[in-house]
Amino acid sequence: MKIICLVKFVPDLEKIQFDKKKNVLMRENARLSINPDDETALAAALKLKEKYPETVIEILSMGPRSVARKFQDLLRRDVDKGILISDPLYVGSDTYATSRILTAYLKHKKVDWIFTGTHSLDGDTSHVPAQIAELLQMDHLNNVVNFDKEKLMEGTALIRVDSEGQILEFRMDLPGILSFEKSREFKMPYIRYEDFQRDVSDKVEILTNEELQLSEEEVGLSGSMTEVSRTFMKELVNKESITVKTDDEGIERVYEFLKEKDYI
Protein backbone atom coordinates (compact mmCIF):
# COMPACT_ATOMS: atom_id res chain seq x y z
CA MET A 1 0.00 0.00 0.00
CA LYS A 2 1.49 3.35 -0.99
CA ILE A 3 0.45 6.64 0.49
CA ILE A 4 1.70 9.96 -0.76
CA CYS A 5 1.34 12.87 1.64
CA LEU A 6 1.11 16.32 0.09
CA VAL A 7 2.71 18.78 2.46
CA LYS A 8 3.10 22.51 2.30
CA PHE A 9 5.52 24.65 4.26
CA VAL A 10 4.01 27.89 5.44
CA PRO A 11 5.40 30.89 7.30
CA ASP A 12 4.87 31.13 11.04
CA LEU A 13 1.86 33.41 11.36
CA GLU A 14 2.81 34.91 14.68
CA LYS A 15 6.07 36.25 13.39
CA ILE A 16 4.62 37.79 10.29
CA GLN A 17 4.59 41.52 10.20
CA PHE A 18 3.16 43.89 7.70
CA ASP A 19 5.27 46.68 6.31
CA LYS A 20 2.69 49.44 6.05
CA LYS A 21 4.90 51.73 4.02
CA LYS A 22 5.72 49.25 1.32
CA ASN A 23 2.40 47.43 1.64
CA VAL A 24 4.14 44.07 1.73
CA LEU A 25 4.10 41.15 4.07
CA MET A 26 7.54 40.76 5.57
CA ARG A 27 7.89 37.06 5.18
CA GLU A 28 11.64 36.88 5.56
CA ASN A 29 11.57 36.89 9.32
CA ALA A 30 8.94 34.24 9.57
CA ARG A 31 10.34 30.79 9.50
CA LEU A 32 8.70 28.11 7.46
CA SER A 33 7.15 25.13 9.14
CA ILE A 34 4.89 22.36 8.03
CA ASN A 35 1.24 23.37 7.63
CA PRO A 36 -0.58 21.94 10.67
CA ASP A 37 -3.33 20.16 8.72
CA ASP A 38 -0.70 18.55 6.48
CA GLU A 39 1.21 17.48 9.55
CA THR A 40 -1.92 15.75 10.82
CA ALA A 41 -2.27 13.98 7.49
CA LEU A 42 1.31 12.74 7.66
CA ALA A 43 0.86 11.71 11.28
CA ALA A 44 -2.21 9.72 10.24
CA ALA A 45 -0.21 7.96 7.55
CA LEU A 46 2.55 7.19 10.05
CA LYS A 47 0.00 5.82 12.49
CA LEU A 48 -1.24 3.52 9.77
CA LYS A 49 2.30 2.40 9.04
CA GLU A 50 2.81 1.67 12.72
CA LYS A 51 0.11 -0.94 12.40
CA TYR A 52 0.97 -2.04 8.90
CA PRO A 53 4.75 -1.71 8.52
CA GLU A 54 4.75 -2.72 4.86
CA THR A 55 3.01 0.55 3.94
CA VAL A 56 5.18 2.91 1.90
CA ILE A 57 4.89 6.58 2.75
CA GLU A 58 6.21 9.41 0.63
CA ILE A 59 5.96 13.12 1.11
CA LEU A 60 5.54 15.46 -1.82
CA SER A 61 5.93 19.18 -1.69
CA MET A 62 6.47 22.12 -3.95
CA GLY A 63 8.55 25.09 -2.97
CA PRO A 64 11.98 26.70 -2.87
CA ARG A 65 15.05 24.50 -2.43
CA SER A 66 15.51 25.68 1.14
CA VAL A 67 12.47 23.62 2.02
CA ALA A 68 14.46 20.43 1.42
CA ARG A 69 16.11 20.91 4.79
CA LYS A 70 12.71 20.98 6.50
CA PHE A 71 12.03 17.63 4.93
CA GLN A 72 14.77 16.08 6.96
CA ASP A 73 12.97 16.20 10.27
CA LEU A 74 9.99 14.57 8.60
CA LEU A 75 12.07 11.91 6.92
CA ARG A 76 13.68 10.95 10.21
CA ARG A 77 10.37 9.49 11.20
CA ASP A 78 9.32 6.41 9.33
CA VAL A 79 8.83 8.23 6.01
CA ASP A 80 10.35 6.39 3.09
CA LYS A 81 10.96 9.16 0.62
CA GLY A 82 10.60 12.88 0.15
CA ILE A 83 10.09 14.56 -3.18
CA LEU A 84 10.47 18.27 -3.58
CA ILE A 85 9.35 19.87 -6.79
CA SER A 86 11.29 23.06 -7.22
CA ASP A 87 11.91 25.23 -10.23
CA PRO A 88 12.08 29.01 -10.63
CA LEU A 89 9.64 28.62 -13.55
CA TYR A 90 6.96 27.57 -11.07
CA VAL A 91 7.14 30.69 -8.95
CA GLY A 92 3.90 32.65 -9.04
CA SER A 93 1.74 29.59 -9.68
CA ASP A 94 -1.75 29.83 -8.28
CA THR A 95 -3.63 26.77 -7.04
CA TYR A 96 -4.69 25.85 -10.56
CA ALA A 97 -1.15 25.79 -11.89
CA THR A 98 0.17 24.16 -8.72
CA SER A 99 -2.37 21.36 -9.00
CA ARG A 100 -1.31 20.71 -12.58
CA ILE A 101 2.36 20.68 -11.66
CA LEU A 102 1.84 18.23 -8.81
CA THR A 103 -0.32 16.06 -11.03
CA ALA A 104 2.42 15.98 -13.65
CA TYR A 105 4.41 14.04 -11.08
CA LEU A 106 1.58 12.03 -9.54
CA LYS A 107 0.03 10.72 -12.70
CA HIS A 108 3.03 8.51 -13.36
CA LYS A 109 3.03 7.01 -9.89
CA LYS A 110 0.98 4.14 -8.71
CA VAL A 111 -0.50 5.56 -5.55
CA ASP A 112 -3.31 4.07 -3.45
CA TRP A 113 -4.16 7.01 -1.24
CA ILE A 114 -3.14 10.62 -1.08
CA PHE A 115 -3.25 12.21 2.37
CA THR A 116 -3.08 15.93 2.82
CA GLY A 117 -4.54 18.75 4.88
CA THR A 118 -7.80 20.63 4.38
CA HIS A 119 -6.76 24.11 5.42
CA SER A 120 -3.47 25.88 4.96
CA LEU A 121 -2.40 28.68 7.22
CA ASP A 122 -1.58 31.06 4.40
CA GLY A 123 -4.02 30.75 1.55
CA ASP A 124 -6.58 28.31 2.92
CA THR A 125 -8.45 27.73 -0.33
CA SER A 126 -8.48 23.90 -0.13
CA HIS A 127 -8.28 23.90 -3.91
CA VAL A 128 -5.24 21.79 -4.61
CA PRO A 129 -6.39 18.38 -3.27
CA ALA A 130 -9.77 18.71 -5.03
CA GLN A 131 -8.17 19.76 -8.31
CA ILE A 132 -5.63 16.98 -8.22
CA ALA A 133 -8.54 14.63 -7.55
CA GLU A 134 -10.28 15.96 -10.63
CA LEU A 135 -7.19 15.58 -12.82
CA LEU A 136 -6.50 12.07 -11.59
CA GLN A 137 -10.20 11.23 -11.58
CA MET A 138 -10.11 10.24 -7.93
CA ASP A 139 -12.59 10.81 -5.13
CA HIS A 140 -11.79 13.40 -2.51
CA LEU A 141 -13.04 14.35 0.96
CA ASN A 142 -12.38 17.41 3.12
CA ASN A 143 -12.35 17.68 6.92
CA VAL A 144 -11.37 14.09 7.56
CA VAL A 145 -10.84 13.43 11.24
CA ASN A 146 -10.48 9.67 11.36
CA PHE A 147 -10.62 6.49 9.34
CA ASP A 148 -10.75 2.75 9.80
CA LYS A 149 -7.22 1.51 9.28
CA GLU A 150 -8.10 -2.03 8.38
CA LYS A 151 -10.64 -1.03 5.78
CA LEU A 152 -8.26 1.45 4.28
CA MET A 153 -5.66 -1.24 3.79
CA GLU A 154 -8.29 -3.39 2.10
CA GLY A 155 -8.96 -0.67 -0.42
CA THR A 156 -12.27 0.64 0.85
CA ALA A 157 -11.91 3.36 3.40
CA LEU A 158 -14.44 4.18 6.08
CA ILE A 159 -13.88 7.82 6.78
CA ARG A 160 -15.15 10.16 9.46
CA VAL A 161 -15.62 13.78 8.60
CA ASP A 162 -16.38 16.71 10.86
CA SER A 163 -18.51 19.18 9.02
CA GLU A 164 -20.90 21.92 9.98
CA GLY A 165 -21.82 20.56 13.34
CA GLN A 166 -22.15 16.97 12.20
CA ILE A 167 -20.02 13.88 12.06
CA LEU A 168 -20.39 12.14 8.70
CA GLU A 169 -19.21 8.71 7.78
CA PHE A 170 -18.26 7.87 4.20
CA ARG A 171 -17.14 4.88 2.25
CA MET A 172 -14.49 5.58 -0.36
CA ASP A 173 -12.78 3.14 -2.71
CA LEU A 174 -9.17 3.62 -3.55
CA PRO A 175 -7.52 5.44 -5.10
CA GLY A 176 -8.70 8.49 -3.25
CA ILE A 177 -7.59 11.73 -1.64
CA LEU A 178 -8.20 12.36 2.04
CA SER A 179 -7.86 15.95 3.25
CA PHE A 180 -7.42 15.94 7.01
CA GLU A 181 -8.36 18.52 9.55
CA LYS A 182 -5.91 19.22 12.32
CA SER A 183 -6.80 16.62 14.90
CA ARG A 184 -5.54 15.68 18.29
CA GLU A 185 -6.15 12.12 17.20
CA PHE A 186 -2.99 12.06 15.12
CA LYS A 187 0.26 13.38 16.50
CA MET A 188 3.62 13.19 14.84
CA PRO A 189 5.86 10.66 16.56
CA TYR A 190 8.93 12.08 18.24
CA ILE A 191 12.35 11.84 16.67
CA ARG A 192 14.63 10.09 19.07
CA TYR A 193 17.77 11.85 20.22
CA GLU A 194 19.98 9.32 18.44
CA ASP A 195 18.24 10.11 15.18
CA PHE A 196 18.51 13.87 15.36
CA GLN A 197 21.62 14.10 13.29
CA ARG A 198 20.96 11.10 11.09
CA ASP A 199 21.72 11.83 7.48
CA VAL A 200 18.60 11.32 5.43
CA SER A 201 19.67 13.20 2.32
CA ASP A 202 19.57 9.97 0.32
CA LYS A 203 15.82 9.90 0.86
CA VAL A 204 15.28 13.30 -0.74
CA GLU A 205 14.69 13.77 -4.42
CA ILE A 206 14.47 17.20 -5.99
CA LEU A 207 12.60 17.48 -9.26
CA THR A 208 12.70 20.38 -11.66
CA ASN A 209 10.84 21.12 -14.82
CA GLU A 210 13.46 19.12 -16.66
CA GLU A 211 11.90 16.02 -15.23
CA LEU A 212 8.30 17.18 -15.27
CA GLN A 213 8.48 18.60 -18.78
CA LEU A 214 5.71 21.17 -18.56
CA SER A 215 5.50 24.04 -21.00
CA GLU A 216 6.05 27.59 -19.83
CA GLU A 217 2.44 28.49 -20.52
CA GLU A 218 1.26 25.82 -18.14
CA VAL A 219 3.18 27.00 -15.09
CA GLY A 220 3.97 30.10 -13.07
CA LEU A 221 1.86 33.15 -13.60
CA SER A 222 1.25 32.21 -17.23
CA GLY A 223 -0.33 28.95 -16.18
CA SER A 224 -2.41 30.55 -13.46
CA MET A 225 -6.10 31.27 -13.77
CA THR A 226 -6.13 33.80 -10.96
CA GLU A 227 -3.84 36.66 -10.06
CA VAL A 228 -3.37 38.67 -6.90
CA SER A 229 -3.71 42.25 -8.03
CA ARG A 230 -3.04 43.73 -4.62
CA THR A 231 -3.01 43.04 -0.91
CA PHE A 232 -3.88 45.21 2.06
CA MET A 233 -4.28 45.04 5.79
CA LYS A 234 -7.79 44.68 7.06
CA GLU A 235 -7.40 47.18 9.86
CA LEU A 236 -5.16 50.03 8.99
CA VAL A 237 -5.23 51.59 12.42
CA ASN A 238 -3.29 50.49 15.45
CA LYS A 239 -5.18 48.94 18.28
CA GLU A 240 -6.42 51.86 20.33
CA SER A 241 -7.69 50.80 23.67
CA ILE A 242 -10.62 52.58 25.27
CA THR A 243 -11.72 52.42 28.88
CA VAL A 244 -15.33 52.55 29.94
CA LYS A 245 -17.32 51.90 33.09
CA THR A 246 -20.21 49.57 33.75
CA ASP A 247 -22.72 52.41 33.45
CA ASP A 248 -25.22 52.61 30.59
CA GLU A 249 -22.82 54.54 28.43
CA GLY A 250 -20.08 51.98 28.90
CA ILE A 251 -22.32 49.01 28.22
CA GLU A 252 -23.65 50.74 25.12
CA ARG A 253 -20.10 51.20 23.88
CA VAL A 254 -19.40 47.51 24.36
CA TYR A 255 -22.64 46.60 22.62
CA GLU A 256 -21.73 48.78 19.66
CA PHE A 257 -18.30 47.20 19.47
CA LEU A 258 -19.79 43.72 19.43
CA LYS A 259 -22.21 44.69 16.69
CA GLU A 260 -19.59 46.47 14.64
CA LYS A 261 -17.29 43.47 14.69
CA ASP A 262 -20.16 41.11 13.86
CA TYR A 263 -20.13 39.22 17.15
CA ILE A 264 -23.83 39.76 17.55
Partner: peptide
Protein backbone atom coordinates in the same frame (compact mmCIF):
# COMPACT_ATOMS: atom_id res chain seq x y z
CA UNK B 1 -18.40 27.63 0.56
CA UNK B 2 -19.94 24.77 2.45
CA UNK B 3 -18.31 21.41 2.99
CA UNK B 4 -19.67 20.20 -0.33
CA UNK B 5 -19.11 23.50 -2.09
CA UNK B 6 -15.44 23.57 -1.18
CA UNK B 7 -14.94 20.18 -2.72
CA UNK B 8 -17.16 20.75 -5.74
CA UNK B 9 -16.03 24.19 -6.88
CA UNK B 10 -12.33 23.43 -7.37
CA UNK B 11 -13.14 20.24 -9.25
CA UNK B 12 -15.46 22.10 -11.55
CA UNK B 13 -12.96 24.90 -12.06
CA UNK B 14 -10.33 22.42 -13.10
CA UNK B 15 -12.82 20.66 -15.35
CA UNK B 16 -13.77 23.94 -17.03
CA UNK B 17 -10.14 25.08 -16.97
CA UNK B 18 -11.05 28.34 -15.39
CA UNK B 19 -10.15 30.45 -12.38
CA UNK B 20 -11.74 30.04 -8.95
CA UNK B 21 -11.51 32.33 -5.95
CA UNK B 22 -12.40 30.81 -2.58
CA UNK B 23 -14.21 32.35 0.38
Amino acid sequence: ATHIGRMLAPRLAMRLQTGLVAD
